[in-house]
């Protein structure tokens, strides 16, 4: 790493501090995880990942995260639009409330959602007679992941809506486009990179989520047991090999998604040419 000439001091000190902190706090532990995987060998890792219970847990974590992120994509975009474009009493309050999932500890959200949707809870009581079981089913996991992922979509999309120049929409309307056509052909393309980023961030957060899910999930092996919980269970059994294998798979999924996010951003930037 070479620095270009700058009269400002402190570069070696700042970079040194940053690299040491980054190494000790983040990189060294992750290296230990990778090293443990290497020591086990790919055969052992795949052997652990091949078990039906692990496969079901990984699939569930990914599937539920995908469903929640898709819901958040639509709902988050609508919420961002309403907050950015419409004026109504209490708007600032709702706007602040969007960040609640960032600030509320996940364990608190978990027990609150479970209490609401349990068969005798405030919402559960209304839903059970309709045959809708939320708590202790996969639907409960979706709900928890919707909660934790929502702000990512809203906070990514909202500032981009604010930046849309009214002239674009006016021009579109002047040229005879209906409001729907304007939204579809003018607004949506401008928002699509932000929508994709928000979707991906929400997905990435949801795949690894633990605290808000374990209370409401029921945690039935093979059915409602998420992958992070299986890691915790294996660690409590001192089965470090199995925990490492699942951890590596989750790390792989995370980095795969990170690459995907970067790739879609590069792709949309190239296609649309701005933002």
């Amino acid at each position: 790493m070479l620095r270009t000439s700058s009269p400002l001091p402190g570069f070696p000190l700042a970079l040194g501090l940053l690299l040491s902190a980054l190494s000790v706090v983040v990189l060294l532990p992750l290296a230990a995880l990778l090293g443990k995987g290497l020591a086990m060998g790919p055969g052992q890792v795949l052997h652990h990942l091949g078990s039906a219970r692990v496969g079901a847990a990984l699939l569930l974590s990914f599937r539920a995260a995908l469903i929640a992120a898709l819901f958040n994509l639509v709902f988050g975009a609508a919420l961002a639009w309403v907050l950015a474009r419409y004026r109504f009493p209490g708007r600032r309050l709702i706007d602040a409330a969007v960040d609640l999932p960032f600030a509320l500890p996940t364990a608190v959200a978990g027990i609150a959602l479970t209490t609401l949707y349990a068969p005798n809870g405030a919402f559960g009581r209304l839903l059970e007679p309709l045959g809708l079981h939320i708590a202790y089913t996969e639907a409960g996991i979706w709900l928890a992941l919707i909660f934790v992922g929502l702000p990512f979509v809203v906070r990514t999309v909202q500032p981009v809506i604010d930046e849309i120049a009214p002239e674009w929409e006016e021009a579109s309307a002047t040229l005879g486009a209906s409001r729907w056509t304007t939204l579809r052909r003018v607004v949506l393309p401008v928002l699509s990179p932000a929508l994709m980023t928000g979707f991906a961030l929400s997905l990435a957060r949801s795949v690894g989520e633990y605290g808000s899910v374990i209370f409401i999930a029921g945690n039935l092996p093979g059915k409602t047991e998420i992958a992070p919980l299986l890691i915790v269970i294996r660690l409590e059994e001192y089965d470090y090999d199995a925990a490492t294998a699942i951890g590596l798979a989750m790390l792989g999924i995370s980095f795969g998604m990170l690459l995907l996010i970067n790739a879609t951003q590069v792709w949309t930037r190239r296609r649309i040419g701005h933002v």
């Binding site: 532990p29 230990a32 690894g208 633990y210 992070p228 919980l229 660690l235 951890g247 989750m250 990170l258």
Partner: peptide, 14 residues
Amino acid sequence: SVSPVVAGLALVLL
């Protein structure tokens, strides 16, 4: 982008 549980696991392994 790393699951908190995986972060904890990595620290335990180290």
